[in-house]
């Protein structure tokens, strides 16, 4: 019976590049159900429910405005401080959520992964998508506050053409977060050291991502700051909304290339880890 065609052939070692994206597509229903779970389960047994999605960035913006603008007197480039921090925080939160949540893919889902097979990439993808949904809700808040300042003041000059690139900028953040998250999650399966590393690296990275200050006041460190893809994106978004900030094609192009390379490395590592991480997790 030489002509038999087997559906599944499992060997100890598989090709590093065989990503099986077709199989991931087959599990699209699972991805959507996981997204639904993430959103609904998180706000069960709360009175305000999804309202928390609005409230979180608003409160943080208030705190940041008071601390960094009124007390520390950091220059926000003629952008009203509330708007300045809200833009920064909304997009930074999206990035950091994508990163930290995907980084625990293996460790926090070990109990499911140990019992059932499905393409493991399903979990990080569902995290990215459910965070996009959260981001779009927060985006509405951002639009309302932005509209208020647009009408009330004449310091902001949005660029409506570049606004068309917003989806690309968001994807850039998503994939950058995903890539680092996947790499960290793969490394943490065996050695948990990276979990500790990640927590404070994310905290520190916020200070280097133009969330608190504009890139324009960093002087000779500006290039260094802008080499961080998150800074490049946040600055670009600020420019789109207010006309203040740096919309730099070279830096964004560089961010795209870096992210693509990182994503490829991440997928290869993840792919290698997902096969047998149950033995070491």
């Amino acid at each position: 019976m030489k002509t038999e065609n087997w559906d599944i052939v499992v060997k100890p070692k598989t090709s590093l590049l065989k990503l099986n994206l077709k199989e991931v597509w087959h599990y699209k229903d699972l991805i959507m159900l996981l997204v639904k779970r993430d959103i609904t389960a998180q706000y069960k047994q709360t009175i305000l429910g999804p309202l928390w999605i609005f409230l979180q960035p608003l409160f943080t913006t208030m705190a940041f405005t008071i601390t960094f603008s009124y007390i520390a007197k950091i220059d926000t480039n003629a952008i009203p401080p509330v708007l300045f921090y809200l833009i920064g925080l909304t997009f930074w939160n999206y990035f950091s959520e994508c990163l930290t949540k995907t980084a625990s893919t293996f460790t926090s889902n070990a109990s499911i992964f140990g019992k059932v097979y499905f393409p493991r990439l399903v979990i990080p993808l569902s995290i990215i998508i459910s965070n996009i949904l959260k981001l779009s809700i927060q985006f509405i808040v951002l639009l309302i506050i932005w509209a208020y300042y647009l009408i009330q003041t004449n310091t902001i000059h949005p660029n409506y053409y570049l606004a068309l690139t917003l989806p690309i900028l968001i994807l850039l953040l998503a994939f950058f977060g995903l890539s680092i998250g996947l790499i960290v999650s793969s490394l943490t399966t065996k050695y948990r050291d990276f979990t500790f590393l990640l927590t404070f690296v994310v905290q520190l990275l916020m200070y280097g991502s133009c969330v608190i200050f504009p890139a324009s006041i960093t002087g000779k460190y500006q290039t260094l700051v802008m080499l961080n893809p998150v800074s490049a994106v946040i600055e670009a978004v600020r420019f789109i909304f207010t006309g203040q900030g740096i919309y730099s094609i070279p830096f964004l192009l560089y961010a795209t290339i870096t992210t693509s390379i990182l994503l490829m490395i991440a997928l290869i590592i993840f792919n290698k880890t997902e096969k047998s991480f149950m033995d070491t997790v």
Binding site: E4, D7, V9, P12, K115
Partner: peptide
């Protein structure tokens, strides 16, 4: 059930 890989050897399956 593919939650882990064998160290040596292989298996083949037909169907879901």
């Amino acid at each position: 059930s593919r939650t882990t890989l064998p160290t040596i050897g292989e298996y083949k399956i037909k169907g879901r």
